[in-house]
Design a protein around this nucleic acid. Structure first.
Lengths: 162, 162
DNA sequence: CATATTTAAATGCATTTGCAAATATCCCTG
DNA sequence: CAGGGATATTTGCAAATGCATTTAAATATG
């Protein structure tokens, strides 16, 4: 009972959320900002008959040629089962095309159609605008640094997913 | 037919997503990163009987004292009707308390209970860890700059919401 | 080479979500 | 101070979501 070590200091003192404040906690800020970004697009998307998963799939497919469905799920940040159904709709509407993989008949590759590309290009200016609103008043070099940090963060999380 | 001006440049040329690349488009990166962050917490939350809306409400309430429900909806980035039901559950579980506003009997203020605070403090270390994983290898000054930019962005979107 | 294991995608089902409408109260205007 | 909007919250309902399971095919193992 002669232990002299200070009992009140744990090895690592974790500050509480209240101490940091919501607006210093990066995930809170990011969720808040993305919530607004996504909401601002939802309206536009609804007019085009698109939901968030459908739009995200189209966006990724406008850039990546013929990914597997499970890859598309990761890139577009949509649950695989949700994506599967979103693809059903997109295929029915003629915006994408499913093609069974040549070397693995379990797998399916997904391609955007010309119609799909046109559709996405109608939406893209709104997405660019929404980004522009987010970044309003932020100088170019600060934007670049911000995106650079995001890319590092993506690398960090990628070690856990994929 | 002697017009010498270059005909290929429209007044404002909007780069396509394919030209920027997904990984230079900030909203894509942010959605991707937050998707992972939220997924990593979902598991932990499930064990505590929390959903994302319930967790977010608790987190905000651990910092903000007695907000109106519509304010809480904005702060916690949850649709008001969804929040209303999340609060039903949280109240049943004794984690929050609804109290009708003194000066406006339409309005309801929400307070976290001691039990709710304890509950949230069980989750908080996981949230802090998740943030730490996101920021791994990113130096302190870069983190600060990043959060600073996020705060500016929040100000930008705030002009549109609330 | 038969069998067990893993992997890809789709589907069944219960829960959650979000829009729109309902309800209750407040505030403004004449 | 009565009536017509606004505003705060809840609720009905159809659609979307996500987990767990199924189906089908590939790969590993003995």
């Amino acid at each position: 009972m002669t232990d002299q070590s200070p009992p009140e200091k744990p090895p690592e003192t974790l500050p509480r959320l209240g101490e940091i404040g919501l607006t210093n906690y990066a995930p809170y800020l990011m969720n808040r900002i993305m919530g607004r970004y996504n909401a601002s697009l939802r309206e536009e998307m609804a007019g085009l008959g698109l939901t968030t998963p459908k739009m995200r799939a189209l966006a990724v497919l406008s850039v990546i040629e013929g990914p597997l469905i499970r890859e598309l799920a990761v890139f577009s940040v949509v649950e695989q089962s949700t994506l599967s159904r979103a693809l059903d709709q997109l295929a029915t509407e003629g915006l994408i095309r499913r093609e069974s993989d040549a070397s693995d008949s379990r797998a399916t590759r997904v391609y955007i159609t010309d119609t799909g590309r046109t559709h996405f290009e109608t939406l893209w200016p709104r997405m660019a605008e929404a980004q522009e609103r987010m970044f309003r008043g932020i100088p170019a070099d600060e934007r670049r640094a911000f995106v650079g940090t995001l890319q590092k963060m993506l690398t960090n999380i990628r070690k856990h997913e994929i």
